[in-house]
Design a protein around this nucleic acid. Structure first.
Length: 426
RNA sequence: GGAAGGGUGGCAGAGCGGUCGAAUGCACCGGUCUUGAAAACCGGAAGCCAGCCAGUGGCUCGUGGGUUCGAAUCCCACCCCUUCCGCCA
């Protein structure tokens, strides 16, 4: 949620900043609603105050055994109940309307975010690694998977439909090795605490990190229950601090979580249908940081570097993109995407997304810390993939393939693979 | 699934219709004392919202409703936790 005070005090400026990301704020509508809210809330609270004062007097009169005085005041308060009930209902209604309006407003963008409406306008900040030159025509992961006998999309489809995969043998093991490797690096080298969480969260948690009203269609919901399959471990992990006041000295909190992710891909029909680039279920190792507002941008850079470190250790060429205004997600103030080189697609493809949400999620979640003046204050939240395991598997297969269809195992993964140096066709 | 008990401030734990947003203890912060610390003593301190910013008002004792002039206290529903039994990875 954006800062409601800021929205009230400087509505036009906020509207202008929102326009930068293509969101049109109905300024007149908001102002009218806000005026009504102020009027009704003030009036309601004034009447409540009066009621409370008189009730207190009744109590005092009763204590003084002054029955005459009690009857007098009771007569005065006679009509209050109904009037109050009506005003409170009116107040609730306008508050709900206002909340509904404000909760679907996206975050304000950081000033470093470039203008733009689509991914084409994202800014490439840096490249690392040289895409390998093949002396044969490189296969994509689907062909490699078929050759190696470890990626089975037919059985995935038989079990659950399109956008599901079954992995077998050495490829299943490589997939596991990647997740283990990432967890080990982040815990031992980058200072994260490993966590294991539920793979379903309540609607309140979902609404804490994003807008459930706006994006519930992207999630798989459990029938007849207020539970959603998580689309990323960001959902459970960030909510660790919901409704909490974190002590200052505990910051920053740094968590790493390996989990499956479930996405309906509702708006992606026909996109990336080949292979396992875009599945309904995939594994991801997620980095989450809960930080002091004064350090969020510094730590955002650090977190991004932590994700990049995995790509470097695996010697996978990648580039770092700064998303433009139109491509930055609802809750984010600033997002870096890491794109890995995929020879099979002859393109860089997203493998990690690292965002600074500033206080946007924290305000939705009521996640606070006790600041230097011992007052509750809004936290900042960060997260990033470190990395998407399925896509990393694709990247390893495609970048490490040999002419005969076998695949070398990157050095850092060999100890996780029982020392195997390569994977060969079955 | 069955039975019982319980959800109150950072924690523990009173209160069970009326100056209760809440006793008390621990922890915490400030002060006195001390060479310093501890102990002792004195004092302070919940969160959210609104505001014509005042030592102002409202809301909050799991959540939502109800009764009442007045609810942490009474009634209803729901959620969650604990223990026991059953079942089970």
């Amino acid at each position: 949620m954006i800062d409601i005070q800021l929205l009230r005090n400087d509505t036009d400026a906020v509207a202008k900043r929102l326009a930068a990301r293509g969101f049109r704020l109905d300024v007149a509508g908001f102002s009218a609603l806000e005026d009504a809210r102020r009027r009704i809330q003030v009036a309601t609270e004034a009447l409540q105050s009066e009621r409370n004062a008189k009730s207190k007097q009744i109590g005092q009169a009763k204590a003084a055994k002054d029955q005459k005085r009690v009857d007098e005041i009771m007569a005065e308060v006679a009509g209050y109940g109904d009037r109050l009930k009506q005003m409170e209902a009116e107040n609730d209604a306008v508050q709900a309307k206002l909340h509904a309006l404000v909760s679907v407003i996206p975050n304000l963008l950081h000033q470093s975010v470039p203008a733009g409406t689509s991914a084409e306008q994202n800014a490439e900040l840096r490249r690392w690694g040289e895409p390998r030159r093949f002396d044969f025509k490189p296969r994509d992961h689907v062909d490699l998977g078929a050759l190696l006998g470890g990626l089975d999309f037919d059985t995935g489809a038989k079990l659950a439909g399109a956008r599901f995969v079954v992995m077998r043998g050495q490829l299943a093991r490589l997939h596991r090795a990647l997740a283990q490797f990432m967890l080990d690096v982040h815990t031992t080298e980058h200072g994260y605490t490993e966590v294991y969480t539920p793979y379903m969260v309540s609607g309140a948690c979902a609404d804490g990190v994003s807008s459930l009203a706006k994006f519930s269609g992207d999630l798989f919901k459990i029938q007849d229950r207020d539970l959603y399959l998580i689309p990323t471990a960001e959902y459970p992990v960030t909510n660790f601090v919901r409704d909490e006041i974190v002590p200052l000295e505990a910051l920053p909190l740094k968590y790493v979580c390996h989990s499956p992710c479930f996405r309906s891909e509702a708006g992606a029909a026909g996109k990336d249908t080949r292979g396992m680039i875009r599945n309904h279920q995939f594994d991801k190792v997620e980095l989450v940081q809960i930080v002091h507002p004064s350090r969020s941008y510094e730590l955002h850079e650090e977190l991004t570097a932590h994700a990049e470190a995995i790509l470097k250790k695996l010697a996978l060429p990648y580039r770092t993109m700064l998303l433009c205004a139109g491509d930055t997600g609802f809750s984010s103030a600033k997002t870096y995407d890491l794109e890995v080189w995929l020879p099979g697609q002859d393109a860089y493809r997203e493998i990690s997304s690292c965002s600074n949400f500033e206080g946007f999620q924290a305000r939705r979640m009521q996640a606070r810390f006790r600041n230097e003046k011992a007052r509750p204050d809004t936290l900042h939240t960060l997260n990033g993939s470190g990395l998407a395991v399925g896509r990393t598997l694709i990247a390893v297969l495609e970048n490490y393939q040999r002419a005969d269809g076998s695949v070398s195992v990157p050095e850092p993964l060999r100890s996780y693979m029982g020392g195997a140096g390569k994977i060969t066709p079955a």
